[in-house]
Every structure is written in structure tokens, then in C-alpha cells.
Lab assay of single mutants.
Amino acid sequence: ENVVSAPMPGKVLRVLVRVGDRVRVGQGLLVLEAMKMENEIPSPRDGVVKRILVKEGEIVDTGQPKIELG
């Protein structure tokens, strides 16, 4: 899985990584606000952040790609 998608609709509060960052499985990639709760979205695997496809403040839909890992 190279693309991390939104598990639920919500607002991107914070992006916790930058392009080029090495990430580990379970590491937080971003914080999504859904139903007035903050949810940290974890990396599904070890890898390197290739692209960030969302911006802080953006509203995302379920299944929308957010971060691409290499």
C-alpha cells in the first residue's frame, strides 16, 4: 500500500511529516478531526514520504488519498 487514504471524512488539522521523511509503521502521519474528535492517522508500513496530497485545514472524504509512501 503506497497511498494512505482517509478512513473517515473530516478536516486535516495537522500534517506531522514532510516529503523525504522516513516513517515507521504506526508512526503518526497527520491529525484528522472527525465528529469533534482528533484522530492521528498512522503509517501502514515503513517507508519514505514521497508526496503529501492534502493541506492543513482541508476537508477530506472517506477513501481520499492523503499521503504517498515510497
Rank of each mutant, 00 (worst) to 15 (best):
P7G: 13
V23A: 01
G26E: 03
A6N: 03
I52K: 01
M35E: 13
I41N: 02
V15P: 01
P44D: 06
N39T: 14
M37C: 11
G70E: 15
E38R: 10
N2P: 07
S43R: 01
E56D: 08
K50E: 09
A34C: 14
V4K: 04
Q64K: 06
E40Y: 13
Q27T: 08
R18D: 08
G20S: 04
I59K: 09
G10T: 05
P42H: 11
L13D: 02
E56P: 12
N39A: 12
L29D: 00
E38W: 10
V12H: 00
Q64Y: 07
G26R: 05
G70R: 12
P7H: 11
L53M: 12
R18P: 02
N2L: 13
G70F: 15
V49E: 01
R14L: 07
V4R: 03
R14K: 12
G47H: 02
P9Y: 11
L16Q: 03
G57L: 06
M37S: 10
D46L: 04
N2R: 09
R51M: 09
E56W: 08
G20L: 05
M37L: 10
G70C: 15
M35A: 11
V19T: 07
V54S: 01
G26D: 04
L13N: 04
K36S: 14
D21C: 09
K66H: 15
R45N: 07
L29P: 00
K66C: 15
L16K: 05
P9W: 12
P65I: 11
Q27S: 06
E1F: 14
E38C: 11
I52F: 01
V25H: 10
R14E: 06
E68Y: 13
E68M: 13
P44R: 04
G20C: 12
R51Q: 10
M8R: 09
N2Y: 15
P42D: 05
R22V: 13
P65W: 10
K36A: 13
M35L: 12
V54A: 05
D21N: 05
Q64G: 05
E38M: 11
E1T: 14
V49L: 00
E33A: 09
G20N: 07
S43I: 01
E1N: 14
D46H: 08
R51C: 10
L13Y: 03
S5L: 14
G20V: 02
P65N: 07
V54E: 02
R22F: 14
I52P: 03
V25E: 12
R22H: 13
T62R: 13
R45G: 06
T62P: 10
G57S: 04
V4C: 09
I41C: 10
V3A: 07
P42M: 12
L13G: 02
V31M: 06
G70A: 14
